[in-house]
């Protein structure tokens, strides 16, 4: 479903932060993205959620060549990708409801239908009473749940999470991974960047390990 071939990335005229990255992610697979700080995990995630185009190489997502695709065609592709950012990136001026509804509105889904889905999901993750609250009054754990709800609201084919367990205690981290595992069982391809070795060991999914901008341990066709 996703293929990287000899992909390199540099910011401006700086040195390459990613070099010769090649891997395949089969549909419905689950991968941990690991590596020390500065190894390029966030850059690789940025390529995966189409925040950057690579400096070289070939990226194919959902059967389409991202490198040669016209810019306008990328927006519909992004609607198939859910991202849980490390800092959540919730919009403080919008309510929880509106934050989660954002991808649906961006995709042009009818308002009544979108609201129905959002309320249902927020109720399911235990935030049914917080619909009209602003993210600033929520706890860190609640904010994270809102961020996850926003990432999965439009049923993405690819879900990316950047250090989702970094700011929460072990119990919440475990619950979070169970949630991702559940989504993975439903067919969503998942890539989770994390430093949490205990969780990686516990769940046992294959890992993509980065070191100094290069993939040193890849998992070719690692569909689970």
């Amino acid at each position: 479903m996703i293929r990287f071939e000899s992909v390199g990335l540099r910011y401006g005229t700086g040195p390459e932060v990613l070099r010769d990255i090649s891997f395949d992610l089969a549909q419905g697979s689950f991968h941990f993205l690991t590596g020390p700080s500065g190894a390029g995990k966030s850059s690789l995630l940025r390529l995966l959620y189409l925040a950057h185009r690579p400096s070289r190489g070939l990226i194919t997502m959902f059967g389409q060549d991202v490198m040669t695709m016209p810019r306008d065609a990328l927006a519909p592709l992004r609607q198939h990708i859910g991202v849980v950012f490390q800092d959540f990136r919730l919009l403080d001026h919008l309510s929880v409801l509106d934050n989660v509804a954002l991808p649906l509105r961006a995709a042009g889904q009818p308002e009544a239908q979108a609201m129905g889905h959002v309320k249902e999901l927020l109720k399911w993750i235990g935030l049914g009473d917080c619909l009209h609250l602003k993210p600033t009054v929520l706890s860190g754990g609640q904010q994270q749940r809102v961020a996850i709800a926003r990432a999965v609201i439009n049923r993405p084919r690819l879900l990316l999470a950047d250090e989702p367990t970094g700011n929460v205690d072990n119990a919440i981290a475990l619950r979070l991974l169970y949630l991702f595992e559940e989504l993975h069982r439903l067919g969503t391809t998942i890539v989770v960047a994390t430093h949490n070795e205990a969780l990686i060991e516990r769940f046992g999914f294959p890992r993509l390990h980065l070191s100094e901008g290069q993939l040193v341990q890849e998992a070719r066709h690692a569909a689970v």
């Binding site: 927006a75 519909p76 592709l77 990708i81 991202v83 990136r89 954002l102 509105r105 961006a106």
Partner: peptide, 16 residues
């Protein structure tokens, strides 16, 4: 720009 970038990343078109 942060809000705009987020909208862009969640799949909002330029027109939106």
């Amino acid at each position: 720009h942060e809000v705009i970038e987020l909208l862009h990343l969640v799949g909002a078109t330029d027109a939106f």
